[in-house]
């Protein structure tokens, strides 16, 4: 059932995003073409093309955000909810299908933006410069942290995806809490968002305080053992500890928001 829900969610959103990406990338190509073909003195067409490109780029991110809101609000909590909530499936599958697809489009929108920028700045010379700079950055990190930089990149990717999921679920949970009100549900959702956000900050701060002192003790111990100079491996250890703490904390938050959303949609659904 989840597979089918994902399929329809992708269909419903892909018809907006795919043409948008195609437009963005074609506009980047047009910009590139104009700037290569036109003589340097002719500025107006270049500026116009660039303004259009930037507008579309900004628009793409705005659409990505709005789609995330709208697919949840319109498809689940408005009239279309009559269809979605009478399907023989559990509410958590509806939430997961929306979440996964929203994550996917956020990542793809960022990728489309990078690709389009790359098209515009691409020149043979600076492409080489780019690869050299990238290699240098990797080597630099390697000497600083050692072989664990690969694990480290994995941690960053996992952490980033989880933070994205937590952000989206925070919005879902706010809309779900707003749904508990009998009227002014949108206003209530905004209120719920502010309250949940504040609560999260507070909780996160407490968690950091909890973990900060054992971590700094450990760091001090490592420092004194190493005689004031940290070895590459110890540095890596600390980095990993911080990353995993962040990942665990984000996971807990995301799970909390998910639980709130699922609770409201399965136990307190009241479609208008």
């Amino acid at each position: 059932m989840l597979r089918k829900l994902l399929k329809y969610e992708l269909k419903a959103t892909g018809r907006i995003f795919l043409p948008l990406y195609a437009i963005l990338i074609s506009l980047a190509a047009v910009n590139k073409l104009i700037s290569t073909l036109l003589p340097i003195e002719v500025q107006a067409p270049k500026i116009i093309a660039m303004v259009i490109y930037i507008t579309i780029m900004v628009g793409m991110f705005v659409v990505t955000f709005i789609m995330m809101l709208q697919r949840f609000y319109k498809n689940l909590l408005s009239e279309e909810g009559y269809l979605m909530f009478t399907l023989p499936t559990q509410p958590w599958k509806l939430i997961v299908s929306k979440l996964l697809v929203a994550i996917l489009w956020t990542i793809l929108s960022s990728l489309a933006a990078y690709i389009s920028i790359f098209i515009i700045i691409f020149e043979r010379g600076n492409f080489r410069a780019f690869t050299i700079a990238f290699r240098e950055a990797v080597t630099g990190l390697y000497t600083f942290l050692g072989p664990s930089i690969f694990l480290f990149s994995g941690e960053i990717l996992l952490g980033a995806t989880l933070s994205l999921a937590a952000g989206i679920l925070l919005v879902y949970a706010s809309m779900a809490l707003g749904h508990l009100c009998n009227r002014q549900r949108i206003l209530a959702s905004v209120g719920a968002f502010i309250a949940l956000n504040a609560l999260t900050q507070l909780l996160f701060f407490q968690l950091v305080r909890l973990i900060a002192s054992p971590l700094s003790q450990r760091m001090q111990r490592l420092f004194s053992e190493a005689g004031g100079h940290l070895h590459m491996l110890s540095r890596a250890q600390i980095f990993h500890a911080v990353m995993w703490f962040g990942i665990a904390a984000t996971f807990i938050l995301a799970a909390g928001y998910f639980a709130i959303t699922n609770y409201v949609l399965s136990k307190h659904l009241n479609l208008e």
Partner: peptide, 9 residues
């Protein structure tokens, strides 16, 4: 009817 369909609690 909405109660019977779980659209209302």
């Amino acid at each position: 009817l909405k109660l019977a369909n779980g659209l209302l609690t």
